[in-house]
Amino acid sequence: STHLEPELQLRDYEESMRRWANFQSKTHALSLSLTSQLRLILTPSQSTKLSGSYRTGKRLNIKRIIPYIASSYKRDKIWMRRAIPTKRSYQILLCVDDSKSMGESSSGELALESLVMVSRALTMLEVGEIGVLGFGTNVFTAHEFSEPFASHDAGAKVLQRFAFQQDYTNIRFLVRQTIERFRLARQQSTSRGSEDLWQLALILSDGLTPSSEHEDIQVLLREAMEERIMIVFIIMDDMTQKKEQSVLKLKKVKFLSNDEIKTEYYLDTFPFQYYLVVHNLEDLPGALAGLLRTWFAEVNT
């Protein structure tokens, strides 16, 4: 790695291998479901754009009309057609929250299961490169884009890095690092120039970050959007142990200028535009596919 990263205590390799295999068989059906849903969204078979110049077609190309008349109706390729879609390739970064709050609830376990399920689905799709980051007080690389992700060995090495012991959750720093790593990865991308490179980050976290940072995060998210980096926040909200501790019910104290105290829902000021709240692993494939479908529809219009 080119980044300065602290040495972390790695978990036992054999144990991580068993956990990976275990998660994989547990989530296999869901991975398949996610794969088939994502195939439709990530690899479009039809372009939405009309272009080109043809003798027949769907819509007139206005720019061709004057030359058409000037040429005494000889240059008659005045129509546009739906173009064959450019092949898309993806760089997908899975970012897993390694902070202590994840271990306090069972959200950490849910995040790792989700990581296995999503990474397997993406590997089966073969749409591009997959990277994994961990974050807490700082950000570390658990899997490089350039490395293949198709083996149990690669998976076990990722799981070895997560212990949910970090004392702070710095999501602002994660977003900044995500942008920087995507910039670098775009330069180093192995995809052909003719291919259309899309960059997508999925953050798996309980969503708890100091609300004083929410504004800074919004600024960074706008920066990411300008560079066509999409960041989706998947809030892991396992309620099997503590129903009343759902992030949906979590409130935040607000001190008003007139010395009054109000409370508001924590998620009301959540800075991420694209986020999901996932209580069970079974909800994730449908919810994630739905959100990505919405996003692609928005960027294609």
């Binding site: 009343e244 979590l250 409130k251 935040k252 104290v253 009054e260 105290i261 109000k262 409370t263 924590y266």
Partner: peptide, 26 residues
């Protein structure tokens, strides 16, 4: 209908916590 789980600033002491509990939304 009021949540018992709430995010508060860590610089609060007894008085600040008391004010939160007494407030209209608690």
């Amino acid at each position: 209908d009021s949540s018992s789980l709430i995010v508060v600033p860590t610089d609060l002491k007894r008085y600040g916590l008391s004010r939160i509990l007494n407030s209209s939304s608690m």
